[in-house]
Every structure is written in structure tokens, then in C-alpha cells.
Nucleic acid binder design. Structure first.
Length: 290
DNA sequence: CTTGTGTCCTGTAGGC
DNA sequence: TGCCTACAGGACACAA
């Protein structure tokens, strides 16, 4: 669920309540959520205990984000800093609650913090992960983080960058936009929205897209992600994305195509259609997009 | 290297 | 009401 605008909103709203706090311990209800350390894979017998041991006493210095990864920079005294890397995948949610709060529905991990607050990782589908790693020594399970492409909100993300990455390729443009090594942080919602803004159908082959269209697409990706951040992310009716204080985002009101199949296009009134690319649904306006 | 497909895991919505 | 199936914002392994 959470794409770049959602994770960035979470980062911004989490920062004031987490920065400077000390981690006093962790409660792990679902060990599958721990992506690193893994039992048996790093000379550790019990990864769960190892995570608790390594994290306890660390202080949260800074919150960062790369693509859809949220990164908590930790330190303990003058020992080398560790990173707590969190990926929310489809249904993950991070909430800050008073430590006295009882166990929440779908609560998988709780980090107990100083100041009687806790950071709770809610994850109904158990696909999300947390990783405790050393900076500059990322485990193989985090190669996705290592291989991220430029973010569309980065100053150097432009038509030339995008064309270099995909223009020679025969795959559908939509599938390539979901590739994190090409455009970090873009997911199903914002790729559909960007293609609408650029007037390009999701099924178009990357090599058939013109220079002018790549210009529009690069700008559309940038603007749609910036707008998503400005409106604090997209909370669909049945969806789980929530900000850390449990409030919803507001970008859903502005969606032009995502989750709007069979509804009229807000620009021309044509019925929004959907198609399938790989295993994922894509929506587009057959008149506004060519 | 590229592309398309299946899988992970669980909850929920909708059909019958 | 109850059972069953299809589907869900992501990422990765794998086969061709």
C-alpha cells in the first residue's frame, strides 16, 4: 500500500515523536516480520533475541526514507550506528501509542521507547519486514534497498534519466514504472496517476514511447508524488494506510483513475477502464490516454 | 539481461 | 448465516 508519498508522510509525522527517544526493548509477536538478523544466517541461533539485544539501549537519532523504505538511524554512545529499516509492503502500518496501550489488532512488533511511548508495527498480511543492520554492511535480503533507482522527486530525475533506463526495452511502461530500480518509491497508485497525467496508456511498450512523451512522464511522476506528499498520502475506503496518529491521508479525493474503473473520467467523462499487467490491475482513461 | 508468472500471507468483500 | 472464491497498495524467485 504505502508508496513514496505515504512513507514520506509517515516519516515526517513520526520524526517529532521518535527523534531522541531511547529504545528500551521490543515485543515480537510474529518473528516472521524480522527480516534481519535471521536465525542461522548470520551466526545467530535466535534472531529474535539477537534483535532485542542489539536494539535495546539504542537511541533514535534520525528518520530517513529511500523509496518505500523507512530508515531509523540509531546510535548508542559512541558505538557504530545501526539502522532499523522498515518496509510496510501492502498492509503495514506504524503507530505511536502510549506504552500502556494494550495489544492492538494485527500488532506484530512493538518497540518500547523512553517517555512512555511505543512504536507499534501493525501488519495484517505479515508481508512487511523490519531489518536491523549496520550501515555499509547490508545483508543480501536488503539488496532491494541497495539497488534502488532515482526517486522521481530527485532533481536529476528527468526525461533523459528515464529514457536511458527504459527506452530500449520492450516491456509495458506500467510494469517498468513499478520497478524500484528504475523509479524508486513508485507503486500501483501513483504509476496509474502519472500515466494519466502524461496521457500515456499503461499497456504501451517502453520503446514505442516518444521523446516528448518521456518528458511529460518524468514531469508527471514528479508532480504526482509531490501532490501525494502534499496531501499526506492515499487512504482508500478498504485500505489500511494510516498516518502514525491513525488519521487518513487526503489524496484519495484527487485520484483521477486509480480505483475508478467504470466511473466517468473527471476530465472528459469517458468511462475509466482497467487492464491487467502481470498480476496487477491498471486503470486508464481510453480517451485522455493514447 | 529481459520478460512474464507464481508465491509469500492474511483479511475482506461479494456471490451463491 | 455460512461457505467459497477472488482479490489486495509489493517484492522477489524462477523459468523461458
Amino acid at each position: 500500500m504505502p508508496e513514496l508519498p505515504e512513507v514520506e508522510t509517515i516519516r515526517r509525522e513520526l520524526a517529532p515523536s521518535l527523534t531522541g527517544r531511547k529504545i528500551l526493548g521490543a515485543r515480537i509477536s510474529r518473528p516472521d516480520i524480522v527480516g534481519w538478523p535471521r536465525s542461522g544466517e548470520c551466526g545467530v541461533r535466535n534472531a529474535e533475541c539477537e534483535l532485542k539485544r542489539l536494539i535495546t539501549g539504542q537511541r533514535i537519532r534520525q528518520l530517513e526514507r529511500r523509496g518505500k523504505y523507512l530508515i531509523l538511524r540509531l546510535s548508542r554512545g559512541d558505538s557504530p550506528g545501526r539502522l532499523l529499516v522498515i518496509h510496510l509492503r501492502l498492509s503495514g502500518q506504524l503507530l505511536v501509542v502510549p506504552t500502556s496501550t494494550g495489544k492492538l489488532r494485527f500488532e506484530r512488533i512493538r518497540f518500547l521507547l523512553s517517555g512512555r511511548r511505543s512504536l507499534v508495527f501493525i501488519e495484517p498480511r505479515v508481508l512487511g519486514r523490519v531489518y536491523l543492520v549496520e550501515e555499509g554492511n547490508l545483508p543480501p535480503v536488503l539488496k532491494g534497498l541497495q539497488n534502488l533507482g532515482l526517486e522521481p522527486i530527485h532533481p536529476r530525475f528527468n526525461a533523459r534519466y528515464l529514457q536511458n533506463k527504459v527506452q530500449h526495452r520492450s516491456a509495458r511502461i506500467k510494469a517498468l514504472l513499478l520497478d524500484q530500480g528504475i523509479a524508486a518509491g513508485v507503486g500501483n497508485i501513483y504509476s496509474d496517476e502519472a500515466l494519466f497525467r502524461a496521457g500515456i496508456r499503461p499497456l504501451r511498450r517502453a520503446r514505442r514511447i516518444t521523446n516528448q512523451e518521456y518528458g511529460r512522464l518524468a514531469r508527471a511522476l514528479r508532480s504526482v508524488l509531490q501532490d501525494g506528499i502534499r496531501h499526506m498520502g492515499t487512504t482508500m475506503a478498504d485500505a489500511r494506510y494510516r498516518r502514525p496518529d491513525n488519521r487518513p491521508g487526503e489524496f484519495q479525493k484527487r485520484l483521477m483513475v486509480f480505483d475508478r474503473e467504470d466511473s466517468p473520467c473527471k476530465v472528459c467523462g469517458t468511462t475509466i477502464r482497467s487492464c491487467r499487467i502481470g498480476n496487477r490491475k491498471s486503470r486508464y482513461c481510453p480517451k485522455c490516454q493514447t
